[in-house]
């Protein structure tokens, strides 16, 4: 398992060399979006309206941060469960999104999209929101402020610590439960 320092926007060659289990420290600009923001993005796409950020090479972080205490760029900001965004993720990968950051399992449809469109799914440590917030140096709401914690924010991150959970080659990092489901 390798360790990489990557910068945004991500290029295809950044993503295709990653393998499940690799550690990535990500620096640059990423965008927050969770349930309600994804729904709005899909509606904008359906109406052929411009999106609030350029999808090409972009990284979406599934997070609804806590409010920023004084002196902090952002409040606690760890990943939410990614599975709720599975229904939206393939369409976004087809339009240029290179990576998502979250926690938990993805569907086969998402894993297929990662292979088809050369994308990657990163895991960040769930419940370590205070710690992860320290790697976020700036945060600005760029769309849907009415969604409150679910608004789309542009985050500037420095050495944001990630694990490759699903790679562009069909591999997954998570342990298989010792139980026949």
């Amino acid at each position: 398992m390798a360790t990489y320092n990557l910068a945004t926007p991500l290029r295809e060659e950044d993503v295709t060399r990653l393998r499940a289990g690799d550690v990535v420290y990500l620096t640059g600009t990423i965008y927050t979006a969770r349930d309600a923001a994804h729904k709005k993005l899909m509606e904008a796409l359906d109406r052929e309206e411009p999106l609030p950020f350029d999808l090409e090479g972009s990284v979406i972080y599934y997070v609804g941060p806590a409010p920023a205490p004084p002196g902090c760029a952002i409040g606690s900001a760890g990943p939410t469960t990614s599975g709720r965004m599975d229904t939206y993720a393939p369409r976004l990968h087809a339009l240029g999104v290179k990576a998502s950051i979250g926690k938990g399992k993805r569907t086969q449809e998402v894993r297929d999209a990662l292979m088809a469109y050369k994308g990657v799914y990163f895991g960040a440590t769930g419940g370590a929101g205070a710690l992860l917030s320290q790697r976020i140096t700036a945060s600005e709401i760029i769309a849907y402020p009415e969604l409150g914690p679910e608004a789309i924010r542009r985050l500037t991150v420095k050495d944001f610590p990630l694990l490759v959970v699903n790679d562009a080659h069909g591999e997954e990092l998570y342990a298989k439960p010792n139980y026949k489901l």
Binding site: A66, C72, S76, T125, G127, G129, A130, L131, Q134
Partner: peptide, 24 residues
């Protein structure tokens, strides 16, 4: 590594105004 991060996260939250997890 995960458990070390969770311990560090708890130490950080205790000594700042940051919530342990954004999902309060």
């Amino acid at each position: 590594e995960v458990l070390a991060q969770l311990i560090e996260n708890a130490d950080l939250a205790r000594n700042t105004q940051l919530a342990l997890c954004q999902d309060t």
